[in-house]
Design a protein around this nucleic acid. Sequence first.
RNA 1: CGGGGCAUGGCUCAGUUUGGCAGAGCACCUGCCUUGGGAGCAGGGGGUCGCAGGUUCAAAUCCUGUUGCUCCGACCA
Length: 571
Amino acid sequence: MKASELYAPTLRESPAEAELTSHKLMFRAGLIRKAAGGIYSYLPLGWRTMKKIMQIIREEMDAKGGQEIMMPITQPAELWRESGRWAVYGDEMMRMKDRHGREFCLGPTHEEMITSLIRNEVRSYKQLPLMLYQIQNKYRDEIRPRFGLMRSREFVMKDLYSFDKDVDGMNVSYQKMYDAYDRIFTRCGLKFRPVEADNGAIGGGHSHEFTVLAPSGESNIAYCESCDYAASDEKAELKVIKAAPEEMKPLEKVETPNAHTIELVKDFLNVPIEKTIKAVAFQDDDGRLILAFVRGDHEVNEIKVLNAVEGALHLHMAEESAISAAGGSAGFMSPIGIKDGTVIVVDSTVMEMYNAVAGANEPDKHFINVNPRRDFDESKIIVADIRLVREGDPCPNCGAPLKMTRGIEVGQVFTLGQKYAKALGATFLDENGKETVFEMGCYGIGVGRTMAAAIEQNNDENGIIWNRAIAPFEVVVVPINAKNNDQLEYATKLYEELKNAGVDALLDDRKERAGVKFNDCDLIGYPIRVTVGPKTLESGDVEIKIRKSGEVLTFKREEFLEKICSKLKEL
RNA sequence: CGGGGCAUGGCUCAGUUUGGCAGAGCACCUGCCUUGGGAGCAGGGGGUCGCAGGUUCAAAUCCUGUUGCUCCGACCA
């Protein structure tokens, strides 16, 4: 490919709306262009990288027995009604109607589609296990698309679905995918970590998110340096902290004027924050009031609360009116004396506190000497781990202090169990001729997000630094002055030798000044640049520059091919 | 959804307060010159100032409405 014919519009400046480094660089290097909020076109360079990532994914999926298929983007509403998700998915689903008024959506995911695809075809355990995957556009009407390809509304995703005859089989499939993901992201040159994740409303089974470590990432990860534990903050388990036992003093109600925050309460009563109990009020979609209690210095993990409460699908902050209707008072709540019918979730650590301070369910009053074991009616409360992890909390595995970091979730593997197969009536006959529901798993990778994450992790002030495996081109050959025929000829020769050796090379034959070309090369981030100028022409040597390290190397003409190829392997 | 901000040539923005010829830099085209890190000179093309109404002799500028984008918060791959 000649750069003079390549459509790669680079920019000196980036549009005002791009804030993330990767977004700016993708824009400036001519990888993508925006069509609408969260919707992008991929230009040749960007698409080349996308294709390379997809190829790596394909190879690893196929190696594990995956078979590629293609399913429709447009999906009929009936399918989603069958699984119950037409209503559940909410505003995030892009919906539309055809001319007859029939309802469709643009697929946000394909569990329903694939389950319906196989349910009438796969009839016997002999056809299992089965792993089918596709790489395709998906649609989610994000509340707030941002960061370019990181959080977009239309995005390319690989998703594989596994079908097994039993849980053991499903776990084998899960492990295969886990291993494949490990290989995929390693091959892409990413620094990542598989972290234990919450599998949300789907429940049961296990789930890991493959997270690229980057400070700009949107997810918080707790990890342990002494063992290999890593979990998203939503998931990270926490052990009960037992306070030193004390003699239980009598419960007492005291005046705490205007002390509606924990800070004010602890100062007013002059108690350590570890001896206070904090309340956070939620409501679910049915309007049920859900009160969550944690120790004053802890934060509530909303996901854990959601998982602890049976039947709740979403939580939002409670309305003031709902709190007073339950006999509570915002800022002064406790499980003691709240009306029945209120869902009360108490963090396990709270149950181990002695003589603590909690709200008295009336304005400007708190209880002191609250002893949850004695004062809470345990038949009416849910006790669970509902606190949010923070740096320094003990690792649930080995007890060492946990570290926190941020990451970009590029893939997720999880077991679905029978949820969708059951809802859609997908069954087969097992060895005993018994009708059995499939055990499923699903495994996604955000392709565009992976590209963005790679850039986010590998760049400098001059531009992108691609890993060789996913670079749009591996090597660029630059004649400094393309109007000089000797240089152009020499460069073309080197370029052709590289091509013939199977190297993905680009010839920058543009009639631009050297500075312009060099800056473009750095911005786009080709791993190796071969520079052809008067110096090399005279010496007959070949000069290369490594993008990542900036080092300039000179090779003898006859050994340059071999040297470049071995250099490439290191990149 | 709540709260801010923005919308002027391909990009970054000035001009709006106080109404009076639509501007700059970069990019683009032509020519000269130049070619080891975004050169220089000369000439040139391109904008119904987001859209729709209104006020006015006159609107990018003032008023009303509307759409899009964007940032912060509550949500998610």
